[in-house]
């Protein structure tokens, strides 16, 4: 099982590498005017990758699709079309209030009783059925989805991957590009030793990322954005505070949780970090909704 997952990560890892290589090489032949860029001058090629916009959005989605495949190997889809559609409706309404409405977003409910939600690049948002059952209203659901959306909007997973693999795309990708170019003429040969090493590196970085989560700064940024996105969509922003308070009250009773919390801000620290925003922007009650009864009808 472990091996097959490793292989999937490997495929996903290689796909992103290939995508990034393709994005770099394709720039050289398109009208983006990047022909004369000296790759060695790029201190952070990944920023370039991010700035390329539409061209790489497709590749981000293709990569996200690979990651989603891996994640769906580990958890089952909830077999309830009504609930899946409902969560997609809430999600798509939030998307309409975000900066990337044109991504092909997917909101996926997993048949799992844990309290969890996560995202993959390109607009894949996962939420467990256990989370849905712990929430009280639609605004709380919107909060969880908006938090995960923020990670996609800001490309946190892609950036973290780059940091963790220490991939200096300017040099490493250059070498790999040559290898892939030559191997692509024949059939792609994944046994090339250098590729395998890089793939291994990316594979373990992904394991690490989805086990240990993102960095503290990313989480706090996603928290702040989640509150704003919810409010833009008309949802009560304080429902998000209620969700984080719920997380704070969960019993830390598993080894996985302990590992996770070692590196991450506690829910209580996240609440403290949210206070300035709530006090400045949401000090007076606005015309916001929680939609508790629609939620109960749709979920139960």
């Amino acid at each position: 099982m472990k091996n097959s997952k490793r292989n999937l990560w490997k495929t996903a890892g290689l796909t992103v590498l290939i995508s990034m290589v393709l994005s770099l090489t394709s720039c050289k032949t398109t009208d983006l005017g990047l022909d004369n860029i000296d790759l060695d001058q790029l201190t952070n090629t990944f920023e370039k990758f991010i700035d390329l916009g539409d061209k790489t959005e497709e590749q981000e989605q293709a990569f996200g699709n690979e990651v989603a495949q891996v994640l769906l190997t580990d958890s089952r889809l909830l077999n309830n079309d009504q609930v899946q559609r409902y969560v997609n409706s809430v999600g798509q309404w939030l998307v309409q209030n975000s900066e990337r409405p044109n991504l092909n977003w997917h909101f996926i409910v997993l048949d799992d009783k844990s309290f969890n939600a996560f995202a993959a690049p390109g607009g894949y948002i996962f939420i467990t059925a256990g989370t849905l059952l712990r929430l009280n209203n639609e605004a709380e659901l919107a909060g969880v989805l908006a938090h995960e959306m923020a990670h996609v909007l800001k490309r946190h997973y892609l950036e973290a991957l780059q940091k963790q693999t220490q991939l200096d795309l300017a040099s490493d990708i250059g070498i790999l590009a040559y290898q892939i170019k030559s191997t692509r003429r024949d059939n792609y040969d994944s046994d090339t030793i250098e590729n395998m090493e890089l793939a291994e590196e990316i594979s373990s970085a992904m394991d690490d990322l989805y086990t240990n989560g993102l960095a503290r700064g990313d989480e706090e940024q996603a928290d702040n954005m989640a509150v704003i996105i919810c409010a833009r969509a008309g949802y009560d922003p304080y429902s998000y505070i209620a969700v984080i308070q719920k997380i704070a009250s969960e019993k830390p009773d598993s080894a996985g949780w302990q590992t996770f919390m070692k590196r991450h801000p506690s829910a209580n620290d996240r609440l403290t970090a949210l206070q300035p925003l709530m006090d400045s922007v949401f000090s007076s009650p606005g015309n916001y909704l929680t939609l508790s009864s629609r939620y109960q009808k749709s979920i139960r």
Partner: peptide, 24 residues
């Protein structure tokens, strides 16, 4: 499912990554 982790709003448990019962 038997998993009672409470990572909450990000991160998967190692157990979950090992489960592999879904359909890619």
């Amino acid at each position: 499912g038997g998993v009672t982790v409470a990572t909450g709003i990000r991160g998967l448990s190692e157990e979950e990554l090992e489960k592999g019962q879904g359909d890619p």
